[in-house]
Design a binder for these strands. Structure first.
Lengths: 112, 112
DNA sequence: ATTATATTTGTCAAATATTGACAAGTCTAA
DNA sequence: TTAGACTTGTCAATATTTGACAAATATAAT
């Protein structure tokens, strides 16, 4: 199981027989910095997730799952958060979704 | 159910009959900025979580749960992440914990 | 061993983002 | 109408992140 997003990118890259320089060019960044990203010494920039999906013909959703789960896991681990945090987060997402309904949908009044 | 960390602080503050100025002083920040925090226009600074726990005699762990779950929920909502993200995050936390064992504990070799 | 290519590491200025602080505004209740 | 509580806007100071480059190391082929 791959943990870090860096390792995930490295796996994708090597499996596709690309060098740092090649992938870096496609992602429009410096190969030295991509190296740091793969080695967990820099963060991958959120704004490049789409490019990454394109380069490897992956679903953006899957890349996002990989990216954000990694972000959350690191935060939880670093800050010694309880696992409950994730459960509460789930509730809150559901709350946000119910509150702020997508455009075009009918929003019924709820209590409060 | 309170969603935002700002609302959470406001609830604590009003329940304890404090003014913005009073709480801000205890947290060592400007009351104007605390107002923005409560109204979701600024982020509460992680480094003040402990002070917050002290002021209201709450367990730091509970405050952290509130704080980070809010952070995660917002990210997921804003970026339209799949709910799976949270499950994957949980797996990754467990992986990080098993990999990087706390000091003093014995670490047996695992596969890889 | 020597060259070429790939990767890693260090550094630093520039670009961005966050914060602290203050002034001026609204709102409410006495 | 004054006082206290809260809100909003702004901006310089500070902190963080990023892009870029040079130099070091590693790896592989000849």
């Amino acid at each position: 199981m791959k943990t870090s997003f860096g390792e995930y990118i490295r796996k994708l890259r090597t499996e596709n027989g690309m060098t740092l320089t090649q992938l870096a060019a496609q992602l429009e960044l410096d190969s030295a910095n991509l190296s740091k990203i793969e080695n967990g010494k820099r963060e991958f920039d959120e704004k490049r997730l789409e490019k990454l999906a394109t380069v490897f013909s992956l679903k953006l959703d899957d890349i996002k799952t990989e990216f954000f789960s990694d972000l959350f896991a690191k935060k939880i681990y670093e800050n010694n958060c309880s696992m409950e945090t994730l459960m509460v987060a789930e509730e809150k997402v559901n709350y946000l979704k119910s509150k702020n309904v997508k455009q075009g949908e009918i929003k019924f009044n709820t209590n409060e």
